[in-house]
Structure formats: structure tokens, C-alpha cells
Amino acid sequence: MSELTAKRSAVTPARLALFLVFRVGNERYALQAIEVAEVLPRLPLKPIARAPDWVAGVFAYRGAVVPVIDLSALTFGQPAQARTSTRLVLVHYRPDEATPAQLLGLILEQATDTVRCNPADFQPYGLDNRQAPYLGPVRKDAQGLLQWVRVADLLDEQVRALLFPAQPLDLLKEPS
């Protein structure tokens, strides 16, 4: 084996991952593409009574009712602007390994770009933000900081119980 071949085999190439980039206000965020099921245009939603303001509603998708949250409203208290680049992004929501993945819709502004990078390039940003555990590490690039949004950490137990009840309502059962 030549010296050049030995050097090439000794260096392990960085594993690059694809991320969907979007904005909340002027700030850039990213979802790992393997968590994304589909990117749709913004669709009409059925509101959920007495849900938190950032729960945008539900819609029917391929025979299932999918809950949707507005990430801008969740993060900064302002609903996403209705732009042509605002998307309804379906993600595979799985809060832990024991729970099967379920579809969750996210309303995301300017969700039109992707970036391919090494996930290890994202670094902790030095704050323990317990109010927003879904906001993960950050990565610096030519456009500034890009923050990783972790889908598994989007919903707390109370909202998860509201959007994904353990016991679905039995619509055929007669009231007593």
C-alpha cells in the first residue's frame, strides 16, 4: 500500500447531514431532514378550543388528523407571518425511544432552504433554557448563527397529552 493510500484510509470523512433551514423573525433555525416527513404549503386548519396560542390547529392528512403548532408563536409569542415561503412541515414526532413516531405539523416561515453540514459543528450556546428545551446547539456560518431545533423536545407532557391523547375518544360509545 502506498503512503498516499494509507493517509486517505486513515482520515475518516466527516458525516454530513441535511438540515431544513427556516426563520423565526430574523433568526435562522434548522431541523434535521431525517425528521421531516413532508413539506407542504400552508393549509387551512381547524382550531382546537382552549389550546395554547401556539397550537395552530389540526388538519386531515392521508386519513389521519394531524396536530399543528406554530413554532414562531411557541418560541417568541408571535404567530408566523403568512408569506408565500411559510410552510406546513410534517415531522416525525417521537418524544422517546419507547413511543412510536407520530406526525406533527409545524408552521415555519421561510422554510425554503437546506444546508448540508456535520452535526458535530453545532455547539452548545451556554444557556440552560429550560423554557425552550427544543432549542439545541448553534452553528456559525457565513450568514451568522444557525440553531438546531430538536423535534423530540418540542412538546411538554401537558401539550403532548392534549395533542396525542393516550386513549382516543370513543365516538361510538353512548353517553351514560
Rank of each mutant, 00 (worst) to 15 (best):
R87I: 11
L20K: 11
E27V: 03
A56H: 02
L104F: 08
N26H: 10
A14F: 04
A82K: 12
R28D: 05
D96H: 08
D128S: 14
P41L: 05
T86Q: 01
Y61K: 07
A33S: 13
L108V: 12
R87K: 15
P44T: 09
A56W: 02
E35Q: 12
G63H: 01
E38K: 08
P119C: 04
A6H: 10
A120L: 15
F122D: 03
A33D: 03
D121S: 14
L71W: 01
T86F: 06
V68Q: 00
G126F: 02
L104E: 05
Y93W: 13
A17H: 12
L103Y: 04
G77N: 05
R42V: 10
A132S: 07
T84G: 14
A30Y: 10
E35W: 05
A120Q: 15
A120W: 00
I48M: 11
A37S: 15
Q123P: 02
V68C: 00
A17K: 13
L45E: 13
D121T: 15
P41E: 06
V91C: 01
P41Q: 03
V39Q: 09
A98G: 07
D113W: 09
P119T: 03
A17E: 14
L16E: 13
A111G: 05
P47I: 13
R116I: 09
P133E: 03
R83M: 12
R8P: 10
L88K: 03
P79V: 06
A10G: 07
G57V: 06
V66I: 10
V68F: 00
L20C: 08
G126W: 01
R28L: 11
A37H: 08
L43W: 02
A132M: 11
D96W: 09
V115R: 14
T114K: 07
A98V: 07
K46G: 09
Q123G: 06
K46H: 09
A111H: 02
S72Q: 14
A64E: 12
V65Y: 08
L74E: 04
Q123D: 11
E27Q: 08
V68E: 02
N118G: 04
V91S: 02
E97S: 12
P47Q: 05
P95R: 02
D121P: 05
L104R: 00
L20I: 09
L40S: 05
L90A: 07
A49S: 15
R8H: 15
F22A: 07
A73L: 03
E38G: 04
R23Q: 15
Q123F: 01
I34A: 14
E35D: 12
P13V: 08
T112V: 15
Q102K: 10
G77Y: 08
N129T: 12
P119H: 03
V39I: 12
A120M: 10
G57N: 09
R28Q: 08
D53A: 10
A56G: 03
A132P: 07
F19L: 01
P79E: 04
Q131D: 14
L20F: 01
Y61T: 07
G25K: 00
W54S: 06
V11I: 14
A14H: 09
Q81R: 11
T114S: 04
V11A: 13
A10S: 14
E35K: 13
L103R: 03
A49I: 05
N118H: 11
Y29W: 07
D113G: 03
P100D: 04
I107N: 07
S85L: 09
F19K: 06
F22N: 01
A132T: 14
G63S: 06
I69Q: 00
R116W: 13
R83F: 11
A56K: 03
P133Q: 09
